[in-house]
Structures are given as structure tokens and as C-alpha cells.
Amino acid sequence: MKRFYLFGFLLLMGFDTLSQISFKYAGTQALPVAASVAWLLRVFGQPWVYGAIIGYVGAFFTWMSLLKHAPIGPAFAASHLEVVSVMLLSVWLFDEHLTVPRVLGAIAIVAGIVCLGLAESREHPPEPAA
């Protein structure tokens, strides 16, 4: 069962990561930003926006099936820890830099998410006999 959870958490992170990467590609290809129909047509006229939608839908169903079985604390944390995978992939895909403030900020945010996950676990203790 542990392996099932781990797989589920990784799948959730994977879908969330796919969404964010796709958002970035979609946005970049639709530049310049404008509150106009032309911008909307540029956004929906290239394939990346649909990658973002697939990521959203996939994450939604993974999240729903995880919540049925998995403990809420780790599930909560896993649903927000894609910041780490997205950051690392941005370096590779978009030539971004892991600046000191970004790394420090990410460490604080991840520590905060872990605290919130622990808080969720304490408030919703796992039900006996799963």
C-alpha cells in the first residue's frame, strides 16, 4: 500500500509540473500580454495550453483518488511540492538560474508546506483498519 501512495504522490506532482511547464510555454508563445481577443486566440491557438489542461484534469482525478485512501497530510504536501520539480526543470528547459533568493525562498516555502502537512495529519488522524 505504501508503494501505491508513493506512486500516487509522484503522479500528482508530475501532473502539476506538466501544467506549470505548459503554462509557461503557452504564455511565452502568446506574448505580448494584452486584455484582448487576439491574446486569447494566441493562447488557445497553440498546443501547450492543452498540456496545461491535461495536467489540471490529471491532477484533479489523482488528488480525488488519493484522498480516498492516502493520509491527508502527505497528500496536501505532495500537492504543493511541485514548486521544487518546476524550479529544477526551469533551469534545464528555460535556462533560468537558481539565484540565492530563489533557493532561500524555496527552502522556507517547502519547510512551511511540510509544517502545514504535519498540521493536517494531526488534525485528521488516519482511520483505523484502512
Binding site: 503557452a26 526551469s90 508546506i113
Partner: peptide
Amino acid sequence: EFLVWIAFLSLIPLSEGVLLGSINI
């Protein structure tokens, strides 16, 4: 929000954007 987020991310580095977006939590 979907559209706002696309516009937001197109203007700043993705690594910075996802970190700033954590404020939603």
C-alpha cells in the same frame, strides 16, 4: 484565474512565478 496565471508566467521566470504563487496556500 487560468488566463491570469498564463499571463503572469509569461512575464517572469517560471521558477520565480511558482514560488510567488505559493502565497495562495
